[in-house]
Amino acid sequence: MSRPEHIAPPEIFYDDVESKKYSSNSRIIEIQTKMAERAYELLAIPETAEGLMLLDIGCGSGISGDVISDAGHHWIGCDISQHMLDVAIDREVEGDVMLRDIGQGFPFRAGTFDGAISISAIQWLCNAEKSHHNPRKRLHTFFQSLFNVLTRGGKAILQFYPENSAQIEMITASALRCGFSGGLLIDFPNSSKAKKYFLVLFTGNNNIMPSAKGVDGAEEYEEEDDNEVKYSNRKRDRRRVTKSKGSAQHKTKDWIMNKKDRQRKQGREIKNDSKFSGRKRGPKF
């Protein structure tokens, strides 16, 4: 899998072209919405609660924000890419967005937000994009600031794509050091495609970790991602069929003549054509 954070820093990678994808590509929108819905579910906001104030970290074009708006809450989003935010403004999202590097912390007063969600953003913090960047320090600033802007009893659900176990450890350790309790939750741990990492963080202590989805592997097939696997399997099967059809035509007279021509053109030494070339042999005794 290609990792965008290896290509360029976020404010450069999510340029005009890449940002437009986020408003037009239905597949991207679907995946982002699914993850945002799951993150919102993990926040476990009681159904009666309405009109809360949530923070969207790395909001991008506001796809995840729409999920919050639909649930009847207000949100403020931060992102480092100007182009992504322009897309968000064009889409007329309900929340407010601002340009901010989350590695510098959040520009809010303490205790402002009842919860926070983040979709595929915090792995960007693990890379040093500029000479003065120090990933550990930036993660520390990020979590410390996040802890401050959340109300006591607030929750943060951060979905991310870790590159390796060292990154997971760096992120989780940094969060716990800043006073959060909670831990990592992995949905569909046995599937390479549907597997999703969520960092579930609480500012208070008396919280129960929610349970992961698809741990026993049985539920997994309900996921959209796996439908896609089935589909690609079908495709592969079809490809196999056409290939075997190709091998049926294999070694007919036409095929042999073609091959001899090709090889002659390549300058190889080829036997002359005769009336016996490519002719069926008689029955064997």
Binding site: D86, V97, M98, L99, D101, K130
Partner: peptide, 10 residues
């Protein structure tokens, strides 16, 4: 364009 630029310089 309605977006506050809160980026800090190095």
């Amino acid at each position: 364009k309605g977006i506050p630029n809160m980026l800090l310089r190095e």
